[in-house]
Each structure stands twice: as C-alpha cells, then as structure tokens.
C-alpha cells in the first residue's frame, strides 16, 4: 500500500485568531498566521491505519481532518499514520483503524490489548462473538443487515433490497453535509467502509475532546461505556457488549436509497444478535 504520511490529514484550515487578536489579524493576516494556532497545543493523538488504500482509508482521513478542526479550539491535534506492523504503539497512539480480513483483525486486537481496534471492513458474524474487549465493530454485521432487510420486506413484500451502513445519496440528519464534505475532499462518494473509517476516528476524537480520556486504555474504556456518538444517522450511537456499534441501517434497491431500518416501532437492538459477551 502507498505510504500514509501525516501531511495528508493536515488539510489547510484558516488560523483561529487567539482572543484579543481579532483586529490585529484583520490588519495583518500573515502575522496572525504566525501567532494564531489557537490555544497552545497541549496534546497530540495518533491513529494508525492497517489495510489497503481505499474507502476506509479515505474515511479515516476525513475523520482525522474533522477531528483537527475540533481540536484547534481545544489545543488538541490528530494524526493518521500507517500502522507500524510490529511492536507496541508510541505513547501518542490512541487507536487502530483496521480494514483487514478477520484473521488479521483478531491478531491485531490481540497484539494491542489496551488499544481500541476499530473493525471497518469485516462483517463476519463470528467476529462479533470473539469477545475481545478492545475489538470494536463500526461496520454492521451480516446478521444486522439481514435483520434490516427482513424488517423492510415484512412491510414491502416484493421489495428486493439490501442493507448498508451508509449511502452517498442519504440526506437526512445532516448526512447531506457529511456526504458533501467527503466528496469535496476526496472526489469520490462515501461508501460503507469510508463511513466506518470516518466514524472510528470521529467518535474517538469526540470523547478525547471531552477530556476524560487522554490515553489509549482510557479512550477504550470511554468508548465501551460512555459513547453517545453522532454518526450523522439521527441517533446517538454506542457499542453493544460484544463490541458491535448499534446503528440504523439504510435500505437500497437497485443502487437507490429506499428506506431506513429499524422500521417504525422497532429499536436499534432489533438489528443484530444479542451480545453473548460479558458487559464492560
């Protein structure tokens, strides 16, 4: 895979004038640029990406770019780098975004037991029964997708649909805005893997921003117990005990978006198997 360099996530964002420098910045923008990286940077957090280049990587980059926008108001910076392959992560290492098949994913999770490993590519149901406390499945499982299709078909008997985590034509709940930002930055449509990569980084940064988790084990704990993530699907999202992200799914017929699951009257736990893993 091509090397992932940190500068890729350093999308240019205008400097934020520090308090008191607004007028100066208007008069002398260059000077302001020197002065004004906002609050002194107190913390830098690194995500590591494991997998081939593709939608998941673009999504993780988008997530990191957005995390930087949030971080510039809080003195926090974020980077996305290539997973080193072997050994422990440096102290700034906060999470691993993994777009790899099941065996490699399990190996990664076991190699970094105190670091959140986000599964953004594999939908195998068996993975959801592994009960590794640091393995978090951002993508929906096959079972969740099957449940979503069954719910839809119970209401629309002839409809041949498939379920997805995301769709580039989704507009509700500000999905329009996320799709627009992603397309503008990467010149391609956001697919399921891209949404999952984005969500993995954004949900982590949202918790870090709130200040309760400044290292990998702390973040993992917060992800499993205190998450209320706005995945731009209208609901606050969190993880089941088996590490699967509860989430609404989109129903697609012939490439076109036709509906959402859970259908009216059902809740998010109507999609997917109950967790057989111990609660955190």
């Amino acid at each position: 895979m091509p090397p992932i360099i940190a500068s890729m996530v350093m999308q240019s964002t205008p400097p934020v004038p520090p308090p008191g420098y607004g007028a100066l910045c208007r008069a002398l923008p260059v000077l302001c640029g020197l002065l004004a990286s906002g609050p002194a940077l107190a913390a830098e957090f690194h995500f590591y990406y494991a997998g081939e280049a593709g939608g998941a990587l673009l999504g993780a980059r988008q997530g990191a770019a957005e995390a930087r926008i949030q971080g510039r108001f809080l003195g926090q910076d974020y980077r996305l780098e290539k997973h080193p392959g072997e050994g422990t992560l440096p102290p700034q290492g906060i999470g691993i975004v993994a777009a790899v098949p099941a065996p490699a994913l399990l190996a990664l999770a076991r190699a970094h037991p105190e670091v959140a490993v986000f599964n953004v590519a594999a939908d195998d149901d068996a993975l959801r029964q592994s009960c590794l406390p640091n393995l978090l499945h951002v993508l929906p499982s096959r079972r969740m997708k099957a449940d979503a299709v069954a719910q839809w078909q119970a209401l629309h008997p002839d409809a041949g649909v498939q379920a997805q985590a995301w769709h580039p034509a989704f507009v509700k709940f500000a999905a329009r805005d996320l799709n627009k930002r992603f397309r503008k930055a990467h010149n391609t449509a956001m697919d399921d893997a891209a949404w999952a990569g984005w969500a993995a980084v954004r949900m982590s940064a949202d918790l870090i921003a709130r200040g309760d988790s400044q290292d990998a084990p702390g973040l993992l704990e917060q992800l499993r117990t205190a998450l209320a993530f706005d995945g731009q699907k209208g609901e606050a999202l969190n993880f089941r005990a088996n590490g699967q992200l509860r989430q609404p799914l989109l129903l697609v017929n012939d490439g076109g978006l036709v509906g959402e699951a859970p259908v009216r009257g059902k809740d998010l736990d109507s999609l997917g198997a109950r967790s057989a893993c111990p609660s955190p």
Binding site: P17, L74, R210, D230
Partner: peptide, 12 residues
C-alpha cells in the same frame, strides 16, 4: 472584536 473567546462542549 469578532474573535472566539470561549468554546463550550455540549451534547451531540
């Protein structure tokens, strides 16, 4: 002045 003097983190 039109500068940001505070950023308040609230719910999603």
């Amino acid at each position: 002045e039109h500068d940001i003097i505070k950023n308040v983190l609230v719910g999603a």
